[in-house]
Nucleic acid binder design. Structure first.
Lengths: 229, 229
DNA sequence: CGCAAAACCTGACAATTATCATTTTTTGGA
DNA sequence: TCCAAAAAATGATAATTGTCAGGTTTTGCG
């Protein structure tokens, strides 16, 4: 299970690839490997993080609790992504909670190493910056979607997103299975509305379901829906 | 009007403060001072930017057009803020348009200088990173507000935001005047709905209006509204 | 100044979405 | 295996918000 960062392929997908051999060695020596069970929290909103989490396997939801008690899922983080960097960089407590939505394997990397490397290796800093710039763009897109698209459109988009990013199994069901409530929290709607739309899509042959599993049947039609026909 | 970046106070508010004397000199030598009239665009969605804009005076809206023809204002940028950095860093075309909502004075800084400095001065890179981290957090907050708060709550929030960030004049009206349509695009609603809420707030004494100008009367009550009582 | 265009406002109505109440199904231990 | 708890589903209804179709006021410009 455990291994050296120097040899870890995951690293290729995130900013750690801009680290030098030496820096990676240090990371590897101080990192802590962790298994996290589905449903367990990696960290909670408001906590002070003393490091970042590099996801080796599994998926986590990053969400924020709102005043009315619902929580909004802002992002899904999976293999290769680093969680908690925003908080470590800004030296503030996190604005988001991270909860595993499948069993996970993560490496915890103490913040000192991250900030030291940021301060001395511009390549690394720029690489992190690039990733953050990408996240920011995505966040802007989410804002526009939230305010301009209907719940139905956002649901359709969510299914397509999951299919494109996590793929499907042999039977055509999405690899990543979310509860109806999680879907509602991604899309920003009530669980009941979410369920109704799933029923509707199913009735119209756009998707299929089997228990909690959902499969995309008519990608084209879902796309048309997202685009507004 | 024109002056040297080394002496510019504006710089204290953004990442340029982490530049060395030498770097600032280079910036100053290649920067281009520009006046932008209210309503004019600094750049349009999809454009490739060959530099960033440092705002010396005035305010710009950063917005994104959605499929249905409305545009969503994602952020207001004012004195001290730098626009276009996301695009320059990620080396992509902008995802946002920037249009002046008051007369502006900006300095255009060519991207080469920015990226050179990023690659050689880790302090600067980290400072930019910090600012971007802050923007990202704010974007997350906007997402949550969009999905969890009612239009009325978001309107109330908008007035408080403008009061706190841009202040009010001697008569208690907000210094920054937005059109009803701009308010609607900030809040993510239809212009008519926006106008109705303004009328409603006015009727209930929460705000006052005089032409396009709006003044906050009952800050406390607006706050209560935002919090959900 | 005068006038056309733009911005603002209002009403009536329709569509979307949330809420509450209840039933059915699924799931994960004891 | 069985049972309680959780999750999913559905109906009825209310609240929120958008749309369309007019008005009125304000603004900028020849």
């Amino acid at each position: 299970m455990e291994s050296r960062c120097e040899n870890c392929i995951i690293r290729q997908f995130n900013a750690l690839r801009a680290m030098s051999k030496d820096e990676l060695k240090k990371v590897s020596d101080s990192k802590v490997f962790k298994k996290v069970k589905k449903g367990e929290a990696l960290f909670e909103e408001g906590e002070k993080l003393d490091g970042v989490f590099c996801v080796r396997d599994g998926v986590s939801k990053l969400s924020k609790l709102s005043a009315n008690g619902k929580d909004q899922i802002v992002k899904l983080a999976s293999k290769g992504e680093v969680m908690g960097q925003r908080s470590v960089i800004a030296e503030e407590s996190t604005n988001l909670s991270a909860v595993a939505i499948s069993d996970m394997e993560v490496c915890f990397i103490p913040k000192e190493i991250i900030s030291n490397t940021l301060n001395t290796n511009p390549n690394f800093a720029v690489e992190v910056l690039r990733h953050m710039a990408h996240d920011l763009k995505e966040a802007d897109d989410v804002i526009v979607n939230m305010s301009q698209k209907t719940v139905k459109q956002r649901m359709a988009e969510a299914f397509l997103y999951l299919k494109n990013n996590y793929g499907e199994d042999g039977d055509g069901f999405l690899n990543l299975t979310l509860s109806r409530e999680d879907y509602a929290n991604v899309v920003g709607t009530a669980t009941e509305s979410c369920i109704r739309i799933i029923s509707d899509f199913k009735k119209n042959g756009l998707i299929k379901t089997s228990g909690k599993k959902i499969g995309v049947m008519e990608e084209r039609k879902l796309l048309d829906l997202v685009e507004g026909f």
